[in-house]
């Protein structure tokens, strides 16, 4: 049977930063071949194929919230595998090896995490699950 791929619309121009990515133009329609939880999606936009940021795409049919898991305010324990310094004021700065709680796994790869009293976005690419529940 043919494989029906999800179609998404590009919501903002994106210039690729490595050769495995593709440039996106606002309004382009792309088909998604693979969705990584780190927020990079493998797309095709004939004749181009490559990785694109999920944060620049919106689904053609229905809100993407339906695909997204609900927040888990109890938190799921993860360890940071790489340090990251916040670039925006809603992000968290964390060192490598810190244990944090993931409370919302967003499709764009920037999960909402909690460390003590602080909450903010952090790249899921730099997180590893500990397998423990808080």
């Amino acid at each position: 049977a043919p494989i029906i791929l999800d179609s998404y619309r590009v919501i903002a121009d994106y210039r690729k930063t490595s050769k495995y990515e593709i440039d996106l133009c606002t309004g382009d329609l792309v088909e998604i071949v693979e969705k990584k939880p780190n927020g990079w999606w493998f797309c095709q936009c004939e004749p181009k194929r490559g990785w694109a940021p999920a944060s620049y795409l919106e689904p053609l049919d229905g809100p993407e919230e339906s695909e997204e898991a609900d927040p888990d305010y109890a938190g799921e324990l993860y360890i940071t595998t790489k340090a990251y310094s916040a670039a925006l004021d809603d992000e968290l700065t964390l060192e490598e090896g810190e244990t944090i709680e993931v409370i919302h796994k967003l499709l764009d790869g920037w999960w909402v995490v909690r460390k003590g009293e602080e909450t903010g976005h952090f790249p899921s690419m730099f997180l590893n699950r500990t397998g423990e529940k808080k």
């Binding site: 930063t17 490595s18 780190n38 944060s55 620049y56 790869g109 690419m125």
Partner: peptide
């Protein structure tokens, strides 16, 4: 391989999308 995803975090959503979600 072409299927190797980028090793850096993807960009945050454009500013207007972040506002819409907030």
């Amino acid at each position: 391989s072409i299927n190797r995803p980028p090793q850096n975090p993807p960009p945050r959503p454009p500013a207007e999308m972040r506002r819409k979600r907030a």
